[in-house]
Simulated assay, not measured.
Amino acid sequence: MAEQRVRGVVARAKGAPVEVTTVVVPDPGPGEAVVRVLACGVCHTDLHYREGGINDEFPFLLGHEAAGVVEQVGDGVGEVEPGDFVVLNWRAVCGVCRACRRGRPWYCFDTHNAAQPMTLTDGTPLTAALGIGAFVEKTLVHAGQCTKVDPAARPAAVGLLGCGVMAGLGAALNTGNVRRGDSVAVIGCGGVGNAAVAGARLAGAATIIAVDIDGRKLDWAQGFGATHLVNASEGDPVAAIKNLTGGFGADVVIDAVGRPETWQQAFEARDLAGTLVLVGVPTPEMRLDVPLLPFFSHGGALKSSWYGDCLPSRDFPMLVDLYLQGRLDLDRFVSEEIALDEVENAFAKMHAGEVLRSVVVF
Rank of each mutant, 00 (worst) to 15 (best):
Ala2Ile: 05
Glu3Gln: 13
Gly8Thr: 04
Val9Pro: 08
Ala11Tyr: 02
Arg12Asn: 06
Thr21Ala: 07
Val25Phe: 07
Pro26Tyr: 05
Gly29Trp: 09
Pro30Leu: 08
Gly31Arg: 02
Leu47Phe: 08
Asn55Ser: 15
Asn55Arg: 10
Gly63Ile: 11
Glu65Cys: 10
Gly68Tyr: 06
Gln72Phe: 13
Glu81Asn: 09
Val87Ile: 06
Leu88Met: 09
Trp90Gly: 03
Trp90Arg: 03
Ala92Val: 11
Arg98Tyr: 12
Arg101Phe: 01
Pro105Ser: 07
Trp106Lys: 10
His112Tyr: 10
Pro125Gly: 07
Leu126Pro: 11
Lys148Arg: 15
Val149Asn: 08
Pro151Gly: 02
Ala152Asn: 13
Gly159Thr: 12
Gly164Asp: 12
Val165Glu: 05
Gly168Ala: 07
Ala172Met: 09
Leu173Ile: 15
Arg179Tyr: 00
Asp182Asn: 13
Ile187Trp: 01
Cys189Pro: 10
Ala196Gly: 01
Gly199Ala: 10
Ala200Met: 01
Glu234Lys: 13
Gly235Asp: 11
Asp251Trp: 00
Arg259Ser: 14
Glu261His: 04
Thr262Ser: 12
Gln265Arg: 09
Glu268Val: 02
Arg270Pro: 05
Met286Ile: 06
Phe295Asp: 01
His298Cys: 07
Gly299Trp: 09
Trp306Phe: 14
Tyr307Cys: 02
Gly308Pro: 11
Val320Pro: 08
Tyr323Asp: 03
Leu324Arg: 15
Leu324Pro: 12
Arg327Asp: 11
Arg327Glu: 14
Arg327Val: 00
Asp329Asn: 15
Leu330Asp: 00
Val334Asn: 04
Glu337Asp: 03
Leu340His: 12
Leu340Asp: 12
Glu342Gly: 09
Ala346Val: 06
Phe362Arg: 14
